[in-house]
């Protein structure tokens, strides 16, 4: 009973935290874009516009919901949920901190600890493409369909690189358990970014493609496809797509911090209390989240053929070579032992 309560509490806290971060990201996106373009950004709702996401959410709830004619109603309604769900599920395996002792109980700070956390995470991120494709297809609109098509092609291409780069890290740590991967990089010198710089760069770039973010946001490329896969969506379903996108960004940022920057470990302070660890993870993930926005307002969008060429002819061979080299090094060093 007590274990169940703890589990529920963890789910509620982590889920609420992620949705809050996603909401704040929608504000941050507009704020950062404004600052980079000499503007103020939203600043009317609450101090510095901090309540803007809340106001937006309310507005979305009260908007009319439209289903286009000839659409597949079931899939049309289901697709946004399918888009948002995998991203939220993924958060379950990411260790947001060490262990807390509350009332004599040791509580690990992650929703669950499963041995194959990395695999679970990858399979969930593989599912996130369904919401986009099915939404695009069920809308019965050519722009939506093209957006969905592009998304599927892009996500399949880049998922390979993503998996291969993560595999290199897994090879180094020798475990699919995210907690073990964190435990292996407690000190700054042990961070995987120093051992896997190429994988880190590839992972960071692939992150953008996986979340359909600029400069790889062909699925919703405005000048060509109106809104892409969500052209026909309105109201909360539209908002759900964006919630999913921001959640995916949050999760991938946390993952990048976990895999390459030591997760909740605090640099130069191994004995830090748990809340400093959580803050440390948030700060590391925050950097990646900021990177998403920063790149969006800096770089122009690629062409689709460039995207595919980059994915298949550059990133995939590089990731394979990196994995091969890592495997060779690990095999030789372990063989010597």
């Amino acid at each position: 009973m007590e274990a169940l309560l703890i589990a529920v509490a963890k789910v509620v806290v982590i889920f609420a935290g992620m949705v809050t971060i996603a909401g704040l990201m929608s504000l941050a996106e507009r704020k950062v874009s404004a600052w980079m373009q000499y503007r103020h950004g939203p600043n009317r709702v609450g101090p510095f516009g901090i309540l803007q996401p809340l106001a937006d959410g309310l507005k979305f709830i009260f908007k009319e919901e439209l289903v286009p004619e000839g659409a597949n109603r079931l899939m049309f309604r289901l697709a946004p949920a399918l888009a948002a769900m995998p991203a939220m599920l993924t958060m379950a395996v990411i260790p947001v901190g060490g262990t807390v002792v509350i009332a004599g109980r040791e509580i690990p700070l992650s929703m669950t600890d499963i041995d194959i956390g990395v695999l679970f995470l990858l399979s969930m991120s593989g599912l996130s493409v369904y919401g986009v494709i099915l939404g695009g297809w069920a809308s019965n609109s050519k722009y939506s369909l093209l957006g969905g098509l592009r998304a599927s092609a892009q996500m399949i291409s880049y998922e390979l690189t993503l998996i291969l780069t993560i595999l290199a890290v897994v090879l180094l740590s020798g475990s699919l358990d995210l907690r073990a991967i964190v435990a292996a990089q407690q000190h700054v010198g042990q961070w995987n970014i120093w051992y896997q710089p190429l994988a880190f760069v590839l992972f960071t770039i692939t992150m953008f493609a996986e979340t359909n973010r600029h400069p790889f946001d062909f699925a919703e490329c405005e000048p060509e496809l109106v809104g892409g896969f969500h052209t026909e969506y309105s109201s909360m379903r539209f908002a759900l797509y964006f919630l999913g996108e921001y959640c995916a960004m949050t999760v991938l940022s946390c993952l990048a911090a976990t895999l390459f920057l030591g997760g909740p470990s605090v640099p130069f302070w191994p004995a830090a209390p748990w809340y400093v660890g959580v803050l440390s993870l948030l700060a590391k993930a925050g950097f990646f989240l900021y990177l998403f926005l920063w790149v969006r307002w800096t770089l122009p969008r690629l062409r689709f053929d460039q995207l595919m060429r980059l994915g298949w002819k550059v990133f995939l061979p590089l990731a394979l070579l990196n994995l091969l080299a890592t495997g060779a090094v690990v095999a030789f060093t372990h063989g010597a032992q």
């Binding site: 194959i116 695999l119 679970f120 990858l122 399979s123 969930m124 593989g126 599912l127 493409v129 998922e159």
Partner: peptide, 11 residues
């Protein structure tokens, strides 16, 4: 289970 979802459903 994870491989099933990753390979079949995901790819």
């Amino acid at each position: 289970a994870a491989a099933q979802i990753l390979v079949y459903a995901g790819a």
